[in-house]
């Protein structure tokens, strides 16, 4: 009896959070599943009809969405890899006994403080091909030709990724640093006595023991990469052509600009499943890596 009462008491504590979670997360999500099998659109907002899987079948016909999927995968993959690798290298470097380490850590972390919209505006001017573009001004002043960072469809996505690595590598570095500082120095001293080189210490001690933070950084980078939106809108708006359209920009344009809500909801469901699967694969890989270390 006491146990039941205690369960109820604790249950009461989590009830407000549960209500908000159901209202603002579970409920809209379930509604999206429902809308994805209806003909809900800006032209038909009441008396919705069941259309089966029609909205899902139509997804591959939309070039915008297909470009968005392709670009998002490239973006997420490159961001995950480079953010982790560069973050680890920076963290290891700034974990050394440097006089300037605190200043350098602050400098590397600083871009993460700004909104992606501000970063977008800043890099838009820096990378512009107009006479006001700082980088291209520099290139032409030393006799090199201009680089069309954001206007060349073969380059634009990678230019966006570069700006985001510039912004978020410092954040990853902080996570890795926190993990690094928890690694006991005893391991390194023991390795030194055994005559291990710097590289051996990194591969055999540092990297395996960084596994928890690698999990955090890679999973957040992968999910964040797949749903990237704001930096694209502020830097390229998906262009030139569809060269930098991502899943989210394509989703917003299809759903809200064109007014096909049911179709957009179907794409949202597919996106959810895709993110879930990719995250599960990544988690599985990380788990196996963790087991191997253990």
């Amino acid at each position: 009896m006491n146990r039941t009462k205690r369960e109820i008491n604790y249950g009461m504590f989590i009830l407000p959070a549960l209500i908000f979670y159901v209202l603002f997360c579970v409920s809209p999500f379930a509604t999206m599943f429902y809308y994805s099998v209806t003909d809900y659109s800006v032209m038909k907002q009441t008396n919705l009809s069941f259309v089966g899987l029609r909205n899902y079948v139509d997804i591959p016909e939309n070039d915008l969405l297909l470009s968005g999927i392709k670009n998002s995968l490239v973006y997420a993959l490159l961001m995950t890899i480079f953010q982790s690798v560069l973050g680890i290298l920076l963290a290891v470097a700034l974990d050394k006994k440097l006089k300037t380490k605190n200043i350098l850590r602050s400098i590397y972390f600083l871009p993460a403080v700004f909104s992606p919209l501000i970063i977008g505006f800043l890099w838009n001017y820096l990378m512009s091909t107009s006479d006001f573009g700082l980088i291209n001004q520099g290139l032409t002043s030393i006799g090199l030709s201009k680089i069309n960072f954001l206007g060349d469809s073969d380059l634009a996505l990678y230019s966006v990724i570069f700006t985001q690595l510039w912004q978020w590598t410092g954040w990853a570095m902080v996570i890795f640093l926190a993990n690094l500082q928890s690694i006991s120095k005893d391991y390194y001293e023991a390795a030194e006595i055994d005559g291990a080189t710097g590289a051996q210490k990194f591969w055999r001690i540092t990297l395996p023991l960084l596994q928890p933070s690698v999990n955090v950084v890679t999973v957040t980078a992968m999910i964040g990469g797949l749903k990237v939106f704001d930096i694209i809108m502020s830097l390229t708006n998906g262009g030139p052509g569809n060269a930098t359209e991502t899943i989210m920009t394509a989703f917003i344009k299809t759903t809200f600009s064109q007014g096909f809500y049911g179709y957009g909801a179907a794409f949202g469901v597919v996106f959810f499943v895709a993110v879930m699967l990719l995250t599960m694969i990544l988690m599985q890989f990380l788990r196996k890596w963790g087991e191997k270390i253990a």
């Binding site: 091909t129 107009s130 206007g151």
Partner: peptide, 20 residues
């Protein structure tokens, strides 16, 4: 020209307004 794909509305306005 291709480099115009890297120029937005405000930057184009600047180029015209400043006589470039």
């Amino acid at each position: 020209t291709k480099d115009m794909l890297g120029i937005d509305y405000d930057q184009a306005l600047d180029e015209f307004a400043t006589g470039k």
